[in-house]
Amino acid sequence: MSRIAATFEKLKSEGKKALIPFITAGDPGKGYTLPLMHALVDAGADIIELGVPFSDPMADGPVIQRASERALANKVGLKDVLVMVAEFRKANSTTPVVLMGYANPVERMGYEAFSIAAKDAGVDGVLTVDIPPEEAGGVADVFKAHGLDPIFLLSPTTPESRVEEVVRAAGGFVYYVSLKGVTGAANLDTEEVARKIAMIRRHCALPVGVGFGIRDAQTAEAIARIADAVVVGSRIVNEIETAPESEVVNRVKYLVETLRRGVDAATK
């Protein structure tokens, strides 16, 4: 069983929901990523989503764009990210790591070569934002063949007729983007999200995670009531951006602990 499947299974048996925090690798500096990853786990993260910096993050709002720019200024590329995951695995063999990024860095390395290197480093899932299942055909198969779960997005604009097609290509879990727009957008409508998730579940046996618009314990709790996993990105990256460098790890840990309490409140 994959680490992602095992994690969801364990949570289910405990009657809990997953918390999936996101950070961009190499932000605010190369040396911060490893301590941040361990801090996320200590604070209650079930899965870590690690952003791979890209020069043109088309689907991201300003907060994560700036994180990408900081990481690129620190010369952090896909190969460095894989090294960071391998380092993380030396001390943690249970928390799944999902890489989230854009097609081109992976394409440049080569899908096969990337899959081998990622599996080797201890990566569990890969979300390439700009590769929908239609283009992924071969790519998702390559990931799967190397034991990587291809994570795909579903959005408010995804018609019901398409959900099954996306789910067929997916592995690990599916990620429902709760808002139209880029990462970091506001105004979460939980009732609308609940309706969509009910529709998705009719076609999908995989766990359903929800991201976009989750900013605090309250929103995390509201989403944890309806989804299997709560993904938080921009809010955490914002904390990294605004904290003094010496405080970054502690502030992120404190924030994720708060989010954890919110997620757990949903299942009490």
Partner: peptide, 12 residues
């Protein structure tokens, strides 16, 4: 060529 965009744009 192809269609390499995030899911939100697929329907559009």
């Amino acid at each position: 060529g192809g269609i390499f965009v995030a899911e939100t744009l697929m329907a559009a």
